[in-house]
């Protein structure tokens, strides 16, 4: 483990190239970014600027072509597949724009799944999953399948699934992209609350300034690079009521 001053996450010169030969496309051209524990960061930028690609690398769902990705001082880009899986299991929670819940599976069982892979006993799984569902306000909906839930509810189940393991970092790629503004605000308030009370580091991609206004820091992407980083001193004071 590195010294305590080092940030939780450090990206240095991250390059991601899709494809090979003449059709190869460089989506990230050398991203540098530091994220400290407890941060609440909004990632903004035009479509195709590399926001999702960066999030996927941070979430260990994808690997960079070049560059260094340090998580708690560990060089993630040098880890094996299964070690990255264990990193996801232990420290990371991911929320997708498209929810990605298992079909025909109850909210409770969806939320329990990460605990199951972690090997928790049944009673503990139940308890923790119910607590997570309670946090997102869906305690009474535990036995509903995704098809029986609204989009906002599905996203809240997905958030419950992402936080049930008490991860260090919650990554959310356009979590409100498929929701109306009222549901979006609910989700933002939920993320703010998780960041504040549970101390989870939150990284969220969004197109809407209203949503970004909830974050402490706003990272602007452009053409596969970090363009600028803004501090948001009015975080939390935005859209309320």
């Amino acid at each position: 483990m590195a010294d305590s001053d080092a940030p939780l996450i450090r990206l240095r010169g991250i390059v991601k190239t899709f494809g090979e030969g003449p059709t190869a496309f460089q989506a990230l051209k050398g991203v540098d970014l530091d994220i400290n524990a407890g941060d609440f960061i909004a990632v903004m930028g035009p479509s195709g600027s590399g926001k999702s690609t960066t999030m996927n690398i941070l979430g260990c769902l994808d690997v960079p072509t070049a560059g260094a990705f340090l998580f708690k001082g560990v060089h993630v880009e040098k880890l094996e597949r299964d070690q990255r899986a264990l990193l996801r299991r232990k420290y990371l929670g991911f929320v997708f724009q498209g929810f990605n819940l298992l079909a025909r599976t109850s909210a409770l069982e969806n939320v329990e799944l990460p605990l199951l892979y972690r090997g928790d006993p049944k009673a503990q799984r139940r308890e923790m999953a119910m607590a997570a569902l309670d946090k997102v306000g869906l305690k009474d909906w535990w036995d509903h399948t995704p098809a029986e839930l609204s989009g906002g509810q599905q996203q809240r189940v997905a958030i419950a699934r992402a936080i049930v393991t008490n991860p260090d970092v919650l990554l959310a790629d356009e979590p409100t992209g498929n929701l109306d503004s009222e549901r979006s605000v609910e989700i933002m308030q939920l993320l703010t609350d998780l960041n504040k009370t549970s101390g989870i580091t939150v990284l969220m991609v969004t197109h809407e300034p209203d949503m970004a206004a909830f974050a402490h820091t706003i990272v602007h992407f452009k053409d596969g690079l970090v363009e600028r980083i803004d501090s948001n001193h009015h975080a939390g004071q935005a859209v309320t009521g």
């Binding site: 299964d82 899986a85 996801r88 990605n100 892979y117």
Partner: peptide, 12 residues
């Protein structure tokens, strides 16, 4: 993909 994303190891 979902199972891997939430922390399953490929062999599981």
């Amino acid at each position: 993909g979902i199972r891997l994303a939430i922390g399953a190891v490929a062999s599981e």
